[in-house]
Design a protein around this nucleic acid. Structure first.
Length: 662
RNA sequence: GCCCGAGUAGCUCAGGGGUAGAGCGCCUCCUUGGUAAGGAGGAGGUCACGGGUUCAAAUCCCGUCUCGGGCUCCA
């Protein structure tokens, strides 16, 4: 009988008789932690509570750290185990179901876990409550999660006997010589899994199944399609309820709903999927966005260009779009035996302008900016409100410069993007450095060395700027690596906004040149960049960001003028006119309604300021001001209000609240 | 494109083999009311489209289109 020295991460130590399980060791070290623990780390390695200590010790004490609730690790274990519970319930209800994978999800706030299955009959959403009920029944039976380690061949045999071909495939691909499998004792479920898991189903109390979706096996469209059941789990019912409530709140900010309620835009099926109609109010927001951008472009010494929407097919062969991007392009159309294709990107056109004359190094960099409308043949199933469409406008620019200037220009672009995003009040922006992948099905132009060189240069530049970024393989554009800015929508879906891309291929393909100091031709470098990315998508994100309550400078209607009685209608008209002359966007409500109803209308339209006008105000040339989030803020002279309102617009203040104090 | 679900008035939705419903919005009239809904009346629908079953289809079945949630893709 040997002894083993164990030490808890809080310092507590004990000498125990080996073999002993982690759960038993914990009980001796810290009763409270032992009760709450879901799993543990032993010498840094995550294990089940049922893990037997014995061989770890070679003199030094064995380090034990409980994995507790209310930690990310704890949540991971909880959700992963709940995914297993889900699979057990599905197997129970639908014998013959084939299992795919069932991980916990911690990064995506929409879900907590999923399990991919192929059931004998197609599952429908009506099955979810039934499955959830069975999960609760199983959880109540207090069944153990049991881990077993067996040779690979045996594992494959077990899963083959259960007719689980997908699991066999996974084991073949991923497993070492020894395979760990998990049972839920007393249920038909067994999984190929590393763990760790909760010891017991009674730890699983607060969970909910959310939705049913299609998902390709291994995420590959050529593989069979499975059904993915999404759910989430928390440690307590209160946390789950709070999460559900928060999600309902978020759904109220959906840009599609607000777009209709605030009359900002529409998509009309009789005109085509994924095509956006900007209504007058949405168009005003867009104009404010674009005006701001134009101002900034001028400050940063960009020049403006306008280019066609369509070009000869040959052009797209030269650029490589037809070969590398053709699937996303609208099919060619023919006129007088010549084929044309709609543009999916603006770059070749700006290249056309650069190439239209001889360039000197003294002229570089050339920065061409355009609100360029492009069309892409997106799959119908991917379309989503303003976020994914088939026709959209890019706040595009292409910078032609010397190779020495590229990095500086890229840093400028990232800077520019950061400033623009700040103006709109975005704080949670994610930067991604997308580079060429090893995946050979995707095509890339250019030599590997160039790709590697460009990547390390961009990474260095981002680091120098102190911008944290994530490196993503296989997401680069076909012509070069890029930096993307991404942001979440109301319910946590991540969308790409702007992008800065280094392109060492298109200048080559179009044989662009500039004459250098040495009086010889050289190849210029090229940077593609967009800050909003797609104006449509950025608008969608903005709607959700502000929940439709746009800051003053973006609000389509900035001031609602609301006369209390017909007697003051003339005065109200004068007020409206004066404010309009000062450049403000004003709506006058002369309806025969009581003031409460007029206020309610303006409030629902999320108009920043309401001016309530009655006899008192008319007599003194004043306005009673109501701000949408604070309510009545008192009476002031019309001129005073006008100045305040103009100040808010000019400063592009994000809230209407701080400004009055300032 | 693929998997599951859904399409009823401008919007949100109820109904469901036998004369098409509500609330909001819209129009008209009355009302002139001081900070989130004043009153009355009215207009408005081939129940997405096409086919089938049936004496009879908005309702059941099939197909198409569109939308929603995902997968794949991507600004």
């Amino acid at each position: 009988m040997s002894e083993i020295n164990v030490q808890l991460n809080n310092g507590a130590e004990a000498l125990l008789e080996a073999p002993v399980t982690v759960a038993e060791a914990l009980k001796r070290l810290d009763r409270d932690a032992a009760k709450k623990a879901l799993a543990a780390r032993v010498n840094g390695r995550e294990v089940d509570l049922g893990f037997t200590l014995g061989t770890e010790s070679n003199g030094a004490p064995v380090q034990i750290e409980p994995v507790l609730p209310e930690t990310l690790e704890g949540l991971d274990v909880l959700r992963h185990s709940t995914a297993h519970l889900l699979a057990a319930a599905v197997l129970d209800l639908f014998p013959g179901t084939k299992l795919g994978i069932g991980p916990a999800l911690l990064e995506d706030p929409r879900y907590g876990f999923f399990y991919d299955v192929i059931a004998p009959r197609a599952l429908t959403e009506a099955d979810l409550p039934v499955i959830e009920k069975r999960m609760r029944e199983i959880a109540k039976r207090n069944l153990s999660y049991r881990r077993d380690e067996i040779p690979k061949a045996e594992a494959i045999k077990i899963f083959a006997e259960r007719d689980e071909p997908l699991k066999c495939e996974l084991i073949e691909e991923k497993a070492g010589p020894v395979v760990s499998v998990y049972y839920i004792d007393g249920s038909p479920f067994i999984d190929f899994c590393l763990g760790p898991h909760v010891p017991n189903t009674n730890k699983l109390k607060a969970f909910k199944l959310l939705s049913l979706a299609g998902a390709y096996w291994k995420g590959d469209a050529t593989q069979p399609q499975m059904q993915r059941i999404y759910g989430t789990a928390f440690f307590t019912q209160e946390e789950l309820d709070a999460w559900i409530k928060q999600r309902e709140e978020a759904e109220r900010r959906d840009h599609r709903r607000l777009g209709r309620e605030l009359d900002l835009f529409s998509i009309q099926e009789q005109y085509g999927q994924g095509l956006i109609f900007w209504h007058p109010k949405g168009a005003l927001v867009r104009k404010a966005m674009e005006d701001y951008l134009y101002e900034e472009l001028i400050k940063r010494n960009y020049s403006f260009v306008y280019t066609p929407h369509i070009a000869r097919r040959e052009l797209w062969k030269i650029s490589g779009h037809e070969q590398n991007y053709g699937d996303s392009m609208f099919s060619p159309t023919k006129i007088e035996e010549q084929e044309f294709r709609l543009k999916p990107m603006n770059c070749p056109f700006h290249i056309g302008i650069y190439g239209s004359q001889q360039r000197s190094y003294r002229d570089l960099p050339q920065r061409y900016a355009e609100m360029g409308t492009v069309y892409r043949a997106e799959l119908s199933g991917t379309l989503h409100g303003l976020m994914r469409v088939r026709g959209f406008t890019v706040d595009d620019a292409h910078i032609f410069c010397t190779p020495e200037q590229v990095l500086g220009e890229m840093i400028e672009c990232v800077d520019f993007a950061a400033e623009v995003l700040k103006t709109f009040g975005f704080e949670k922006v994610k930067f991604e450095l997308s580079v060429k992948g090893s995946d050979t099905t995707k095509q890339y132009l250019g030599a590997d060395e160039d790709w590697a060189k460009a990547e390390s240069a961009i990474a260095a530049a981002l680091q120098e700027k102190g911008i944290p970024f994530e490196r993503i393989e296989g997401e680069a554009a076909f012509y070069g690596p890029k930096v993307d800015f991404k942001i979440e929508d109301a319910i946590g879906r991540l969308w790409q906004l702007g992008t800065v891309q280094w392109d060492f291929n298109l200048p080559e393909r179009f044989e662009l040149e500039y004459i250098g100091e040495d009086n010889k031709p050289h190849r210029p470098a090229m940077v593609h960049r967009a800050l909003f990315g797609s104006i449509e998508r950025f608008f969608g994100i903005l709607i959700e960001q502000y929940a439709g309550a746009f800051p003053m400078w973006l609000a389509p209607v900035q001031v609602a003028v609301l006369p209390i009685t017909d007697r003051v209608n003339d005065y109200a008209e004068r007020v409206a006119r004066e404010l309009r002359e000062a450049g403000l966007r004003v709506e006058l409500n002369l309806k025969s309604e009581k003031i409460g109803a007029k206020i309610r209308d303006a409030q629902l339209q999320k108009v920043p300021f309401m001016l309530v006008l009655g006899d008192r105000e008319m007599e003194q040339g004043m306005v009673a001001v109501r701000e949408r989030s604070r309510g009545d803020i008192g009476t002031m002279m019309l001129a005073e209000f006008r100045q305040m309102a103009q100040g808010l617009v000019e400063s592009r203040a994000i809230t209407t609240v701080q400004s009055r104090e300032s």
